[in-house]
Each structure stands twice: as C-alpha cells, then as structure tokens.
Design a protein around this nucleic acid. Structure first.
Lengths: 204, 204
DNA sequence: GTCTATACTCTGATAGAC
DNA sequence: GTCTATCAGAGTATAGAC
C-alpha cells in the first residue's frame, strides 16, 4: 500500500489531510482569491509558516484540492451503464449525484466557485476529460432514444439538467433552507421531486 | 423626472454608472473578497481615489449593486399571473427567467457568488421578500394542481428547479460552452429543452 | 517539525495639491 | 472632480532559532 509517490511519515500524512480539509472549508466559501492562508491555518489549528512547510504556496494547496475533484465528481456519470435498463440507469445516476451533493457540499461549492470564476485552474480538465465523457454518455443516451426506450430529448442538455438540479441543493443551500424554513429535509424532498421530474420527462 | 433622492450632475450620474458596471464585472467574477478596488477602478478607467470619491467604500459599491438586484431577479416570478392558463403562465415564467440569464449573466453570477458565500449581505432579503413571494406563488401553483389543471408536484421545488435550470446557463456558462463546443447557441437550445421538460412534467 | 520574527507586496482608504 | 502621494493594515512568503 505505501508505494505512493513520496513516502510520508504518519504525522505528515495527518497534517496534510488536516490542512486540505481546512482549505476546502475556506476556499469553498470564499473562492481562491477571497481565501487567506491565515484563515486556513486558523481552521487547521496550525501556524501559517507551518502550513507553508507542508505546501509550498497557496496555489499548491488549491491545486491539490482540485486534483482528483473532477474525477470524484464525474464518477457517478461513469457508472451509468449502457447495458442497464435506461430509465433505471438514469434515475440511479441522478440519485448518486444528489447523494454526492448532500455528502460533499463543500466540494460542490469549490467546483462552483471555480467555474463561476471562469475555470482558470480547470479549463484543461473541462475541455478534456469532462467533455469526452459527456460525449460518450450522450452517445449512449441517444442509442436508448433511437430504440424508443426513453423519450427523445437533447442528451447533452439532459446531462446539464441533472448537474444543475442536483448541485443546486448544495451550492444554493442557504437559499433553499431559507425559503423552505425549518422542519424540512431539502435533499430528501429533492430526491422524490427529481425522480418524478425525470420519470415524466423520459417516459417513452 | 429629476426628483430622485439626491440631485446629481450629468457627469456624476455617468461616472456612477461606469463604476457600477465595472464593479459588476469584477465582483461577479471574483466575489466580494476576491475583488479589488484597483481592478474595478482599472476597468472603469478611473483612478482609485476618484472611484472612492463617488462611493465611500468597497462595501458601498457592492451594496449599491445588490440593492435592486433581487427585485429584478424576482420580477419574472411576480409576473406569473393566477388568472392565466397555468401551463402557459409557467412556461412564460421559464422563458422570462432564461432571457434574464442570457441578457444579464453577470448579475446572475453576482447573485450566485453571494449565495455560495453564505449570503452575508442578502440574508435578510432572502428570508423576507424572496421567501414570501415564493410562498405566495406556491399557493397559486397548489391551487392549479387542486383544480387538476397541472400535474401535482411539490410547488416550491418546482420553483427551485426553474431557478436552477435557467441560472445554470449563466453561472456555468464556461462549462456549458466547453462541453458543447463551438457552433452552438446554449440559450437557444436551452429554451427548447426546458419547454419540453416542464411541459412533460406538468401535463395533467 | 514548529515557532517567532520579518521582508515585501497588495489593498482599502485618506490628505492635499491642482 | 481628479490626480499624486501616502498611510495603516492585511496578505504571501521566507529566514532562522529551537
């Protein structure tokens, strides 16, 4: 197992994780420019120079967070299998994406911040991995439509709509909860609503 | 006409507008903390002290932008009339909201930044005006469902879904265009897709 | 590995000449 | 009304003691 890039002591591993968790907290709330090393060090419970002992710069911390984030974010879509029952596959994808937004809202907001700011640090990945995965899955969706197993809609905009609707509950959490008021479970309600929405949209 | 709050000369009026436009550009891209007066002054073509002659502080510029933004943002929903034909009213609302996202993407991103960051400067407005307007229109939607004129779904989440799907095309514009590639008109395509989506969702 | 001290730059805001 | 000069504080990053 410990045959990773550079071997690190247990305490180094631990501190890197603590820092990245703190950085996720701060970057996801303020974006790259709005976040400060002071805040991150404070949340991590370390001194600022000590933080910079583990990462050479603010950029490096941010980059470490983004690396791998896109993969995690796209995994639910990768798992949509061409051989499954179409509607069930799509609804399962929606559910996985919504669960991801519920369980990792900070990651969702980090991503949203990055895109909102013009994706200066993710452009490549978006125009590469993301674009080609969407193309591949759009092809699968089109196949299902050709066979008449789901209704015909624009497959790429269908994927956009799934991203949009699920991530909204993480990114606009404050607004959603303010409007719903107390005593609601936004994600539970969203689960039912989205299942209805996509079932009706795609019924052949 | 010139019976506004404080009378301002033509040049003052003009400069305030130039500054607010520049500030919208910068704030919408970097959020409040990430934006700097230097950038804003630069885009506005003014010196930083001159900018601060028109607005007392960075906060004041930001506040001036947010004031009225929520109203503009909610106007399309206000215009959804209880006495109209239900599906047509809803589709017209979707269209107005999408047009707003297309024509004022910077405003959309300014709003998104504010919510993403926990709405520190809009909480009140969201828990007040926005919440009560949603409650009012959810009541209208529920009435239509009770009469069997549209299918029954959660009315508040229906409104969320309209916000989410329309604003996505402004806020995630970079990603949308990267995935679609050249030769596409995202907003035109979205118009058709969303009309289909909401028609099928709400057909009684 | 972690801290204090500090260098140096950026940022918001003010003073004062014109 | 607009500019140059400047201040105080925050921000990133480094040096060097322990």
């Amino acid at each position: 197992m410990p045959s990773k890039a550079r071997p690190r002591s247990r305490i180094q591993q631990k501190n890197r994780e603590v820092i990245l968790d703190a950085a996720l907290e701060v970057f996801s709330l303020h974006g790259f420019r709005g976040a400060t090393l002071d805040q991150i060090a404070d949340v991590a419970g370390l001194s600022k120079p000590n933080l910079l002992y583990y990462f050479p710069s603010k950029e490096a911390v941010h980059k470490a967070l983004l690396t791998g984030l896109l993969d995690t974010w796209l995994d639910p879509l990768r798992a949509m299998h061409p051989d499954g029952e179409p509607l069930a596959e799509i609804l399962a994808y929606v559910r996985r994406k919504l669960d991801l937004a519920r369980d990792y809202p900070r990651e969702s907001r980090l991503f949203a911040n990055e895109i909102l700011q013009g994706a200066p640090r993710m452009r490549e990945a978006i125009e590469g991995d993301l674009k080609s995965l969407v193309a591949e899955k759009a092809f699968v969706l089109t196949g299902w439509m050709d066979q008449g197993r789901i209704a015909r809609v624009d497959p790429v905009h269908l994927i956009f709509s799934i991203w949009s609707l699920t991530q909204h509950y993480a990114d606009f959490d404050v607004q959603v909860r303010a409007v719903l008021g107390p005593g609601h479970d936004p994600f539970a309600e969203a689960g039912g609503f989205l299942e209805t929405l996509f079932s009706r949209l795609l019924k052949p």
